[in-house]
Write a protein that binds this DNA or RNA. Structure first.
Lengths: 279, 279
DNA sequence: ATGAATGGTCTAATCGTGATACCATTAGCG
DNA sequence: CGCTAATGGTATCACGATTAGACCATTCAT
């Protein structure tokens, strides 16, 4: 994003198309950032945690096992663990029955949430726009391509989430919130899988990973509306109704964004309802 | 995508949600593929070529300059050049006025195209679905967020493309096809830039890169319809009409896919108009 | 107390990368 | 023709990342 340099181009294009300066977003060659193996390990473990494959209290496999599974040396695994430990994602315990324990993300105080969310607003807007683009298409395509096993797994997620919401008292338990979010992720990922498009699948996984940090510190209770929306999406996909599936997904995501909006500063001058148009 | 291993999870989730097997797409930890720096160089140079920043006949900057710009050693640059040379993307010439010359992609014979495209059909479908999802959203958002400079650059691209199409004789010139594709890429990238969403921007760039190999060997003449469609997209974005911009983009991409379809085997049993629903 | 599991530490070898100098080839020019 | 400059080709040494393996230290269950 820094340097730029138009290549030695003896055959000047502009001979033909005249004033076609344009030359798109910047030049062609920019600096390379070498990627260490331990960084890749960090990324993969983070992704697993962010997608809910490990919830707080779970332990990662022992270092030796991680090394074997990832086909890297234990040294590299340990470097990665130092990073994750430093970022507060895991806690390292020595001795038997010890291990690499996934920590709960610190919840912010009520008065901290607003200012925190304010700083995340732009990122969240981008993420949700991207989600609407890709997940609506995912739902649309899934409606005509899903197979029985995928429908079964979607149903399984819905069942699990409903169970977690059953008693009001359980809605504020941290561990349950983590489990709910894991099932929520899984539902959306199965829909993406069912759409049979690897690019869209990757996009959905990426957004879920990207959402973790911004909203992980904020959620304190489960939203019932999510269950209803998930049911609607599921029903439309099961019925093979592509338009309905897409619209149900859109409504779900828009609603989800709005419920986040309630955690933000109440229209304090900003938020001039720009682009109030339906996305 | 190979190994899997559910973490040591003493706190069994299934205690609560009962038969929630699900456990989404596979396990959590898979093998790491270390990424060498020279691979990153290869990727970036490829991307620059695929996006049309360098067209056949252009020369990349000299090795020493590339090394300086990318902040890597010449050794690493040279490793990357070996790969690009091996893949037939560049030709290395020694001596003064020599350099790293971008080669034209070999065009296939008419009788080869069908079987080649047949093998690419699935990939192309995925790419185009992903494009529709993201670029329609990009156009929609761009309609309300674009600034004057972005409009100017879009217009500049349109002008350049029209100029290239002016005389029928010039439509089959290889160099012109490359220039046309570069401007086409640039137009779509500026739209993506104007949407102000970095995720969508990245998605658009990714798809254009992904399209290069499948269709690079096939195109032999320029399509006029692209110009008309581009004009329509531009007009809608200029007018701030989000719905029209999105729809114009959709039409453009769908048409583009259909014109590719004409290069494929003519419904030889396959292509049972599944998902014939409008995407 | 003992043993097993697990993280912590150390060491030697290997490989990727960087830095630098110098060689070989080629085009342009006096 | 012969120089010079630009550019790719080669060689060398140094350093850091990664691997492989052994061994130490801590903790819990029995």
């Amino acid at each position: 994003m820094n340097e730029q340099l138009s290549a030695a181009t003896p055959t000047d294009t502009s001979k033909i198309d005249g004033p076609s300066d344009a030359k798109v977003g910047q030049g062609a060659i920019s600096s390379i950032r070498p990627v260490s193996t331990y960084e890749l390990v960090v990324e993969q473990v983070k992704r697993a945690i962010f997608l809910g494959r490990f919830v707080p209290g779970d332990k990662l496999p022992p270092e030796r096992d991680l090394a074997a599974q990832m086909l890297v040396s234990r040294t590299t695994i340990r470097e990665a663990m130092r990073v994750l430990e430093g970022e507060g994602l895991i806690q390292v315990k020595r001795g038997a029955m010890g291990g690499l324990v996934v920590k709960a993300q610190t919840n912010l105080q009520a008065n901290e949430i607003e200012s925190y969310m304010e700083g995340q607003r732009e990122l969240l807007d981008s993420i949700y726009e991207y989600r609407i683009a890709n997940e609506c298409m995912a739902a649309r395509l899934a409606a005509t391509r899903r197979n029985k096993d995928q429908l079964r797994r979607m149903g399984s997620c819905l069942k699990g989430m409903k169970a977690l919401c059953e008693t009001p008292a359980m809605r504020a338990i941290t561990a349950n919130i983590a489990r709910f979010r894991a099932l929520d992720s899984e539902f959306h990922l199965v829909v993406a899988e069912a759409c049979g498009n690897r690019f869209i699948m990757q996009a959905v996984e990426d957004t879920r990973t990207a959402m973790f940090l911004p909203i992980g510190k904020v959620f304190k209770r489960l939203e019932d509306s999510a269950n209803e929306h998930h049911e609607a999406i599921y029903a439309a996909i099961k019925d093979g109704d592509a338009d309905a599936a897409s619209e149900a997904m859109r409504l779900h995501i828009v609603t989800s964004r709005e419920s986040l909006e309630n955690l933000m500063p109440q229209d304090s001058g900003r938020r001039p309802k720009k682009s109030a148009k339906r996305v």
